[in-house]
């Protein structure tokens, strides 16, 4: 019953957050210099032409009118059409969604076991060689910006050694059809979250293994392996689960860099293009999608944390 009320409260809060994010993104887009007409006019900014473009693109109404119009459309299930291309916004999302979803899914699938294994391995004998190697590497790797990492990995593994394709150019919408193009982007996306999560698991494990109940379990004669995986780990991963949710938010940002460097035609590329073109309906739809994903994932993480360790209030 408590759980149920909590979910309802969080859901309504989440909806409000999503609407607020789109309003904020709209306001920020309005605050950007120029509009779609100015961008389209490019280096031929004849003022008469800019005015005609503005009229053609329907940019003549007030900002409030345009945002309300968009919001009402969304409530009817209509995401609108691209201001520039005239194609439905839903088509943009249908084309760009799968590559990003594939990148994110593969990253998360690899991230969880690798980070947990790394964290546990480091925690077994804190301060010893294995821990020092894992901890040192992860701190160092965490400090590398993903743009730099992407360029370096591409230069070494694609251009110098020739083991992997340097970009996903021409791969089309289904990256799984040519899995080699996924390797470098996934490595870059994994690098930072694997460090932060394994550090959290390590810390949680050290605390848990040193706790009274772990000591008690060992005194009862349970195998160290059993104590480690069945008793200490569930407590140790609670903060990590919430960090995993933050990682999903981070992935949505990370894909923008990774997609640009490796020419992946995903949501990040779509967003970059839409912002540069000031294509407001496409920007808003992507903001909606990103906000909804973030809110949902965080909600699920908090519920999971609540179930794993009911004593925490799960609202972190």
């Amino acid at each position: 019953m408590i759980m149920h009320g909590y979910v309802v409260r969080r859901l309504s809060l989440g909806l409000a957050q999503i609407v607020l994010v789109t309003a904020l993104v709209f306001a920020l887009t309005e605050a950007l210099p120029g509009d779609a007409a100015v961008v389209l006019a490019g280096d031929a900014p004849d003022p008469g032409r800019v005015a005609r473009l503005r009229h053609e693109l329907g940019l003549t109404g007030s900002a409030a009118e345009r945002y309300t119009g968009w919001l009402l459309g969304v409530l009817r299930g209509d995401l609108g059409t691209s201001m520039i291309a005239g194609r439905p916004v839903a088509a943009f999302i249908a084309e760009s969604g799968p590559p990003t979803a594939q990148l994110a899914a593969i990253t998360l699938l690899l991230l969880v076991p690798l980070a947990v294994a790394g964290g546990v391995a480091a925690a077994v004998r804190p301060g010893r060689a294995l821990d020092r190697v894992i901890s040192g590497t992860s701190v160092a790797l965490y400090a590398v910006p993903e743009f730099a990492l992407a360029i370096v990995l591409g230069a070494v593994f694609a251009l110098r050694l020739g083991w992997l394709p340097p970009t996903a150019i021409g791969a089309g919408g289904d990256l799984l059809a040519d899995p080699a193009v996924l390797v470098l982007p996934v490595l870059v996306l994994l690098a930072r979250p694997i460090c932060s999560i394994s550090r959290l698991v390590r810390g949680g494990m050290i605390d848990a293994l040193g706790s009274g109940y772990a000591a008690h379990a060992r005194r009862l004669g349970l195998a160290p392996r059993r104590v480690r995986w069945a008793h200490a780990l569930p407590n140790a991963v609670t903060p990590a689960v919430q960090q995993l949710a933050r990682t999903t938010d981070w992935l949505l940002g990370g894909v923008i860099t990774v997609e640009a460097v490796f020419v992946v035609p995903g949501l990040g590329s779509a967003l970059t293009g839409a912002v540069a073109a000031r294509d407001v309906p496409v920007i808003l739809a992507l903001a909606l999608l990103f906000a909804a994903t973030t809110v949902t994932v965080n909600l699920l993480a908090d519920i999971a944390a609540y179930r794993l360790a009911p004593r925490s209030d799960g609202a972190g």
């Binding site: 360029i151 591409g154 694609a158 251009l159 020739g162 394709p165 340097p166 970009t167 150019i169 021409g170 640009a260 460097v261 490796f262 020419v263 035609p265 590329s269 970059t272």
Partner: peptide
């Protein structure tokens, strides 16, 4: 025609034999 907005990606794709 293939699209690569980053110059580093265009030259990378060329060196890698993709274009």
């Amino acid at each position: 025609y293939l699209t690569a907005n980053e110059e580093s990606a265009r030259i990378g794709a060329l060196l890698g034999g993709q274009v």
